[in-house]
Design a protein around this nucleic acid. Structure first.
Lengths: 219, 219
DNA sequence: TAGATTGTTAATCGATTAACAATC
DNA sequence: TAGATTGTTAATCGATTAACAATC
């Protein structure tokens, strides 16, 4: 029994599963808010999200959530399981570098708090912006960024800057102690292997969209 | 021979392949600009992008690009193959709905032209914004959106609006003739099966990032 | 009870990786 | 020529889907 749990924990989690979990989470939260029922089943989640029940069940298995046959999963328990599994139970603090349109959009969208991410400070090199606030968050000079990263022991950095300066800023972030960079700049960032770089590439998404549309229109 | 080509065309393209192709494309374009060589090999692309040669080769196979043993692929030919395969050879026109921070970021980033997407008009319901320009693009009232979609025969719509109004605007877009919606609003959009909906979900990416970081820090 | 649903093991499917002949 | 690289077929790996017993 215990062994099984350990095995499950050690098992590598498929990335597709990881990407689906927040989608379930979002739906289940809404389900809770609407106060529909205390229990929820895979069948129900699957129907709503246009998936198949077995896939939802498999995915939830990774979170170690415990369901009851015929009844389903306790809604609050299930939410807690997903939160815990994704490390969203204790909110992670992050900094944002670059307060252009994209960075501003990020600050304005405070929905990430539900997903365990709290942007505590924003930085920009433009002195016009420094000292001002966007969506209630103060903008600081990039010059003080390393100091703040160190002082507050921040591990996650969000990069929303032009491509030309992205690598240099990433280097500064890593030197100061950042361990994961969420990169929205349209260039590849190089860093030591210990640093996790997640590149948000809209061109990839566009390729999927345009190919699917082209195939559809050719039918 | 002909039969083989037909088979290849009919073969379903794996989504991972589709997502990698723009990454190759971007690198090869840069390679061409830097004027390094007339030919490029899978080995080289793989080394640069931290992939393995066989994967690059397999992916390029889908585009029907023709390489020469020992030599590699002709750089301009390869670019053309990818462009053609992804439908980027003739630029697709799109409209943008929502000129908040995110929409503005979209208009400001004109890199999509390289990827076959041209945002020809932007719409907003805020009369303060209507008539102004962002990054050289005029903003129109959403009221005229259907008319313009029809008149210009636009097939792709980009949704960058608050969640509350997303579904309503999507319905209007589809009614006017939009066949693919790139959705940045943090809600699920429902539409008839004929319409392609691509939901850009940052929470999914965040889940991958935060789980990877949590595992890393626990090591 | 009967039927729906979980938990778990097995089968299938598809993407990745390996192997190797052809070739420049 | 020798060695690198393509093109293609085969093997492997991992994710998805199916099957079914357990159970509430």
């Amino acid at each position: 029994m215990i062994k099984k749990v350990i095995n499950k924990k050690n098992k590598k989690i498929p990335e597709p599963t990881l990407r689906r979990l927040p989608v379930y989470y979002h739906y289940i939260r809404k389900f809770l808010q609407d106060n529909k029922d205390d229990f929820i089943s895979c069948t129900q989640i699957a129907r709503e999200l246009h998936l198949i029940p077995i896939q939802v069940r498999k995915d939830l298995e990774y979170t170690a959530a415990q369901g009851r046959p015929k009844v389903g999963y306790s809604v609050p328990d299930l939410l807690r399981s997903i939160e815990y599994f994704l490390g969203w139970n204790n909110t992670t603090e992050a900094i944002l570098v670059g307060c252009g349109h994209l960075g501003s959009a990020f600050l304005g969208y405070n929905g990430f708090k539900d997903y365990g991410l709290n942007v505590i400070a924003a930085f920009d090199s433009d002195l016009e912006k420094v000292g001002k606030k966007i969506s209630g968050k103060s903008i600081y000079s990039v010059k003080v960024m390393p100091k703040i990263i160190k002082r507050m022991n921040i591990k996650i950095g969000i990069l929303a800057v032009p491509g030309e300066v992205a690598q240099g800023l990433a280097d500064l972030m890593v030197q100061a102690g950042i361990r994961a960079i969420w990169n929205f700049a349209p260039v590849k960032i190089n860093a030591s292997k210990e640093v996790i770089i997640q590149h948000e590439n809209l061109a990839s998404s566009l390729a999927v969209l345009s190919k699917r549309l082209a195939l559809r229109l050719a039918e």
